[in-house]
C-alpha cells in the first residue's frame, strides 16, 4: 500500500491538524507514514502545504505530479499546488463552485453550523467518504476523538460528520 496526499491551504486553516489526523490514522491502520509540514513564519496566513506519504517511503516530500489525493482548503491554491497532483489523482476542494474536482462548500457548511474553524474537518469528512483513502471514516473519527484538544473535540466531530453528510446529499 502506497498513497501520497497533499493538504493545501493558508496558515490558520488547520492544514497541520488535518495532516496529523491522517498520520495517526495511517499508524493505527498499520502503515508506515511520513509527513512534511510548514511551521514558523509561513504559518502567519501565508500559503502552506503538507505532504502525507503512506507506505514504504524514505523521503517526506512528494514530487511534482505524484500526489494521489489532494485536499485543497481554498480553491486559489490550485494554481500553486495543483501541479503536485498525478493526472489520475483526485482533488477535493473547499468551494461552492463546481470545477474539474470534487467540491464541497466546507467553509459555508461549517459556518452554518457555528463551527467555522472546523472547515478543515468538513473537507476531510467529505473526502474520506467519497473514497479512495487508505483508511476508513471510522478510523479517522477515532483519531479525531483521541487527539483533538478537549475544547475543540465537539466542534471537530461536528465538522467531520457534516462532511460525511455532505457527500450523501450531493
Amino acid at each position: 500500500m502506497k498513497q501520497q496526499i497533499i493538504v493545501s491551504g493558508v496558515g490558520g486553516q488547520g492544514v497541520v491538524f488535518a495532516t496529523r489526523l491522517l498520520a495517526h490514522a495511517a499508524m493505527e491502520s498499520g502503515h508506515p507514514v511520513l509527513t512534511s509540514e510548514n511551521h514558523g513564519m509561513a504559518m502567519r496566513g501565508g500559503t502552506i502545504i503538507s505532504h502525507v506519504k503512506i507506505g514504504a517511503f524514505h523521503s517526506p516530500l512528494i514530487r511534482q505530479g505524484h500526489a494521489d489525493l489532494g485536499l485543497f482548503l481554498n480553491r486559489e491554491n490550485l494554481g500553486i499546488h495543483g501541479g503536485m497532483m498525478k493526472e489520475t489523482g483526485t482533488l477535493f476542494v473547499n468551494t461552492p463552485f463546481p470545477g474539474a474536482y470534487r467540491h464541497c462548500d466546507a467553509t459555508g457548511l461549517a459556518r452554518g453550523a457555528g463551527a467555522v474553524v472546523a472547515a478543515n474537518l468538513v473537507l476531510l469528512g467529505f473526502a474520506v467518504r467519497t473514497g479512495g483513502f487508505f483508511c476508513t471514516a471510522g478510523q479517522l473519527e477515532e483519531v479525531i476523538q483521541r487527539i483533538s484538544p478537549p475544547k475543540q473535540l465537539e466542534l471537530n466531530l461536528k465538522g467531520f460528520r457534516l462532511g460525511l453528510e455532505a457527500q450523501r446529499s450531493s
Binding site: V10, G11, A42, G45, G46, T47, Q64, I80
Partner: peptide, 15 residues
Amino acid sequence: ATRTAPEKGKRPSLC
C-alpha cells in the same frame, strides 16, 4: 517536466 510553473503563493502577514 513538471506540467505547469506554479503560481506564487500568498505571503504571510501579521495576524
